[in-house]
């Protein structure tokens, strides 16, 4: 048996349009996510990468193929696949602490354990000073930290993130990307991250699944060879790493090829 936690086997999604026409957004996409690894779905706009992520989350139903988590087919949303969105999703009426406790509370985790877990994950994302603040008092980056802590505290097998840092300014983006490397190692959770930012993809990914557009198909799976000795912890280190610039050029070329089809 392989060490993969998630299998996608020829997953397709066709949307029905007006007048009986159809649009195939995702066409026979297959890939695997290894235990505790970070997989990045990368591709030009229109490649259906968000749709793939939403199908894994169970928020959309595939029209073909199967998605299996462990041994169980995915049939709908569930706490084993927590999702962080690009838009802020903090529950504004709850303090940071209660936001992070939310998932555990609705799943019947006892209060004492809830409190302890929440404080652990709030510390992990660096918000200990803001335990009792309301989300409206926090900056955009801090709100995304709350969303990440809330999802992790719920103990998912996979953390799904749909362009989670897309709305943040450049400096906050780096901080969040570096934070995600720490989080991945400490929380021991697999992650699937959707992005169209090439640098972000190379920095975070143990494996990049590059999708082509119209319809979305897996064009290439890329494993950054220079990470064989372990993940890279800072952006400065990344840009100095031999092989980084070459990989970035290669992915840019892939992006351009896709652009020309339009």
């Amino acid at each position: 048996m392989s060490s993969a936690v998630l299998h996608l086997d020829e997953v397709s999604k066709t949307f029905a349009l007006a007048k009986g026409r159809e649009l195939t957004a995702v066409d026979k996409v297959s890939f695997e996510v290894e235990r505790n690894s970070i997989v990045v779905l990368l591709g030009p706009s229109g490649c259906g990468k968000s749709t793939v992520l939403r199908m894994i989350a169970g928020l959309e139903t595939p029209t073909g193929g199967t998605i299996t988590l462990g041994e169980t087919p995915v049939t709908g949303p569930g706490r084993d696949r927590g999702m962080v969105f690009q838009a802020y999703t903090s529950f504004d009426w709850l303090s940071v602490r209660r936001n992070v406790e939310f998932g555990m509370k609705i799943n019947g985790v006892p209060a004492a354990e809830r409190r302890e877990q929440a404080e652990h994950f709030i510390r992990l994302v660096g918000l200990s000073k803001f335990l009792d603040a309301y989300p409206s008092q926090l900056s955009g980056g801090m709100r995304q930290r709350v969303a990440i802590a809330r999802t992790l505290a719920n103990g998912p097998e996979l953390l799904l993130m749909d362009e989670p840092f897309g709305a943040l300014d450049a400096e906050t983006r780096w901080q969040m990307q570096e934070l995600m490397i720490d989080v991945a190692e400490q929380a021991q959770t697999g992650m699937i991250i959707v992005t169209h930012d090439i640098e972000e993809a190379i920095f975070l990914a143990d494996k990049i699944v590059f999708l082509s557009a119209h319809p979305g198909r897996v064009k290439e799976e890329i494993i950054p060879a220079f990470k064989s000795g372990g993940r890279i912890r800072s952006k400065e280190e990344l840009v100095q790493t031999p092989g980084y610039a070459e990989l970035e050029r290669k992915i840019m070329r892939l992006m351009r090829e896709e652009g020309q089809h339009e």
Partner: peptide, 9 residues
């Protein structure tokens, strides 16, 4: 917000 709740179980 609703989808967040659903993926939290």
């Amino acid at each position: 917000l609703i989808e967040t709740a659903l993926t939290l179980g």
